[in-house]
Write a protein that binds this DNA or RNA. Structure first.
Lengths: 228, 228
DNA sequence: CTCATAGTTCGATCATAGCCGAAGCATGGC
DNA sequence: GCCATGCTTCGGCTATGATCGAACTATGAG
């Protein structure tokens, strides 16, 4: 009997504190897993799963399964616009927090994505491998070329060991902060391990950040012909 | 723990169907009384009173007492922006449940918006008054020109009586279904009263529809040079 | 293969808040 | 003074839905 669209349904979805916390966390533009979002909202994984299902059902979030993780991200710019407007309005009584600390910028540059390298450096590496012809992109998947195979071998990665298992060698992994792809799969994992073993970088103890040393960064740039 | 701007509180306020209906009704820009809003939301006056208190407390509405009526209006442009964004999102992603029946089309054509004429005919009238130079549009408000004043007088509206009170003579009122403006304010009310008094139209007993007679419609079109 | 981790589903519990009846103020008209 | 009308407050009923424990599925690691 009412005219107009059902704004109450959408607003009620945002109106729950747990869901609101999830959405605010996702406003960074990065995709987060269900577990991360559960921690962010301060609820258990079961509860978070229910919330995320509702948010997906309501077209506020879009979920993507990657391996055994499920990543969630804001569904559209319109959703972001609503959240943005809400934050502006709520800033009147609350305090707005816009400052992203040094840890956040570090995360954007280089971080662990499940078990491979993500962030701007991960993307740079992926782009370089494409343009070097180490990776070929088919319609919907990617594969390692002979050149890429040789390069990895020369880098010190034991390809024969990697080839022993059936799991995919190369996979694309979408980086939500940049909306670009980076390298996943067994090879992606192997490269990250190599970087750590070589002392180029170290993992942050209690975050997903990966810290490259100056020397490691230089080696990385030279190896992958990164144009930084 | 991580207390950002409290968007959940605001969203939850909008998230209740009754309150959402009230807010949508107020998006017309007009202030409405508690009783009118109760009818709009489909709840009793007691319930509405509680909702309105919460909306006021949450700075979404501003209420002012006038005599024994209490008028409520959207508190700020920021609130309107949030509602607008929500409508856009709910209309696009969601199911717009507007199955327009015969009564609905009548409503779309001509209806009472609080006390003045809304719908396509209200918009046609407003556009005609603009192009005839009866109304001048400033930056954020509109005003009656001398020509418009004379026209209203010649139409039989006693302008001296209207000018006795301080309330705004002309106001814009946004039609959500059409996203266009129509005439509100004392003059808008006076014109609607005149249409009814002249027998051009009658009000539906239990809806907001306004039914124009064939003769009334012809007179209306001639008076406002409507190009239908 | 087995084990561990990520996520989902189900069921029960429990709190929040929406709703209305009835009574209480307040204002205006007489 | 009286009554009518508009709105608010109070108390109790009820339902929706948020929450978590436990059991289940799926995927990857070794």
């Amino acid at each position: 009997m009412r005219e107009g669209p059902d704004i109450a349904r959408v607003a009620a979805l945002i109106g729950d504190p747990a869901r609101a916390n999830m959405l605010t966390a996702l406003m960074s533009g990065r995709a987060l897993t269900a577990t991360e979002l559960a921690a962010e909202a301060g609820v258990t994984l079961q509860t978070a799963s229910g919330h995320l299902a509702k948010l997906s059902e309501g077209d506020l979030l879009r979920g993507r399964k990657q391996g055994r993780h499920k990543y969630f991200a804001i569904a559209s710019d319109e959703v972001a616009a609503v959240l943005e407007a809400l934050m502006g309005l709520a800033a009147g009584s609350g305090h707005l927090r816009t400052r992203l600390g040094p840890r956040d910028t570090a995360l954007r540059e280089a971080r662990v994505c499940y078990n491979h390298l993500a962030g701007t450096m991960g993307i740079a590496m992926f782009d370089a491998m494409i343009s070097e012809g180490q990776i070929a992109t088919q319609k919907d998947q990617i594969s390692l070329t002979a050149k890429g195979h040789a390069f990895a071998e020369s880098f010190g990665i034991k390809m024969s060991e990697l080839e022993a298992t059936r799991a995919p060698m190369c996979r694309e992994c979408l980086d939500w902060s940049e909306r670009r792809s980076h390298l996943a799969g067994k090879l992606g994992r192997a490269y990250l391990s190599a970087f750590l073993d070589l002392g180029w970088a170290t993992r942050d103890a209690n975050s997903r950040a990966v810290h490259f040393s100056p020397k490691g960064r230089a080696e990385f740039s030279r190896t992958f012909a990164v144009t930084t």
